[in-house]
């Protein structure tokens, strides 16, 4: 028996080896290297031979955290707003979509397929389309708003304070179908007898939703929330495509900011320092979440 258990375990470890090796080379080594660079003054002079870049101690961290215009801190605050709003938007649309499509009606399958399109299409395609829709002078959104009289002047969607809302819309647009299809699957696994019993007991639709549906799908929602938060926190594609890589402050979330520092300014040391700080913040959030769920389980 022990020998069989050991053999099974060994077999499992062997299957994991390729993934571990890949993770080591794609994630672990670059992370360690990034931390190393964050203590170096790596600029154009040293790109060819990184080992010659001078050791600068915590200077990159000091520069990043006390950056001109408070860029790091404003970038972090806009990132947190981006994450929270994206999760909230996906939650609302996901629940609505799932609940509406849970019951049978004619054409349900077609509607379900159509709603999945933003998730199936490559993000670059969806977001480039959205960018054109947001154009101030030529975009269809402003065109409709002006023609219907809802606004008297075109809105600057991709510049200024509206840019943050635009990237939130973009992020929700490409992510919410995952919420709706996952929650739908979860809804369909809830036994119908529970609702029948609730009906017999005189429960209203709202009571059924809050007392039966939500509690039973909450594990699914929790997983989706964590995943969406993580994916949004380090999201690069959405702000990059929508702003063309030159964002106004409101859309200059951390991931894009780090890219600009590193690959436009060639200030790799500072970009690496900002990445390390970002990683530590995410680590704290994840540890806090794990602690919270552990306490809840206890």
């Amino acid at each position: 028996m022990t020998s069989l258990k050991a053999r099974n375990a060994l077999f499992a470890y062997r299957l994991l080896i390729p993934a571990i090796i890949l993770t080591f080379f794609v994630h672990i080594i670059p992370t360690i290297w990034g931390v190393y660079i964050s203590f170096r003054g790596l600029n154009v002079y040293y790109i060819r031979d990184w080992t010659q870049a001078p050791f600068v101690g915590f200077a990159n961290y000091t520069r990043a955290l006390s950056n001109i215009q408070g860029v790091f801190w404003s970038s972090l605050s806009y990132t947190l707003i981006f994450v929270i709003a994206s999760v909230f938007g996906c939650f609302i649309l996901g629940i609505l979509g799932a609940v509406l499509l849970n019951g049978y009606f004619k054409g349900r399958n077609v509607i379900r397929g159509v709603l999945l399109i933003p998730y199936i299409l490559p993000g670059v395609v969806s977001l480039t389309n959205l960018r054109f829709m947001f154009l101030q002078d030529w975009g269809i959104i402003n065109s409709i708003l002006l023609k219907t009289g809802l606004v008297s002047e075109p809105i600057s969607w991709l510049t200024g304070k509206m840019a943050l809302l635009s990237i939130i819309i973009g992020n929700v647009w490409v992510r919410w179908p995952l919420w709706f299809i996952t929650i739908l699957a979860s809804l369909q696994s809830i036994p119908g007898e529970l609702y029948e019993a609730a009906t017999v007991d005189g429960a209203s639709d709202w009571q059924k939703f809050t007392r039966i549906t939500l509690p039973l799908i909450s594990p699914t929602i929790t997983v989706l929330t964590v995943l969406t938060a993580l994916w949004s926190f380090n999201n690069f594609t959405v702000p990059f495509i929508l702003t063309g890589g030159s964002p106004s402050k409101e859309a200059n979330i951390l991931s894009l900011n780090i890219w600009i520092r590193s690959f436009k300014n060639w200030d790799f040391g500072m970009g690496a320092a900002m990445s390390v700080v970002m990683m530590l913040i995410m680590l704290i959030l994840i540890l806090a979440y794990l602690r919270f769920t552990k306490l809840e389980a206890e």
Binding site: S156, T159, G160, M162, A163, P247, S248, K249, E250
Partner: peptide
């Protein structure tokens, strides 16, 4: 960046 900042300030 200064172009973006000027246009942003105008939008705001």
């Amino acid at each position: 960046q200064i172009i973006v900042d000027i246009f942003s300030a105008n939008a705001n």
